[in-house]
């Protein structure tokens, strides 16, 4: 079975959306209930920088990929012997 490589981006996009929602909630909680203290602000900035670096690095890495190519799943490339010739050999 083969499927388009581009289909891999759908679950990744769903994960990104869920991750983004949880990240916004977490950051809001930290800044709202963290008494706007130095550790709260520093950790929030560190998280935002980490997230931006990961997303940018991922996008940069994936730009060169040929998304129109197909991905083979569950069809191992094994060449089986020709059964007809084997049967003929035994009959002779």
């Amino acid at each position: 079975m083969s499927l388009s490589l581009g289909l891999l981006l759908i679950p990744f996009a769903i994960l990104l959306v869920v991750w983004l929602i949880f990240s916004i909630v977490a950051l809001t909680k930290m800044l709202r209930f963290g008494f706007v203290s130095r550790p709260a602000v520093i950790s929030s900035f560190a998280y935002i920088i980490f997230a931006v670096v990961v997303v940018v690095a991922t996008v940069t890495s994936l730009t060169a990929v040929d998304w129109s190519a197909s991905l083979d799943i569950g069809t191992p490339d094994i060449s089986l012997p020709d059964l007809k010739s084997v049967t003929n050999t035994f009959q002779q």
Partner: peptide, 15 residues
């Protein structure tokens, strides 16, 4: 960097 294997590994690591 253009192969399907590279794309799969990159997506898994990013996730």
């Amino acid at each position: 960097a253009t192969s399907a294997g590279f794309a799969v590994i990159t997506i898994l690591l990013a996730s």
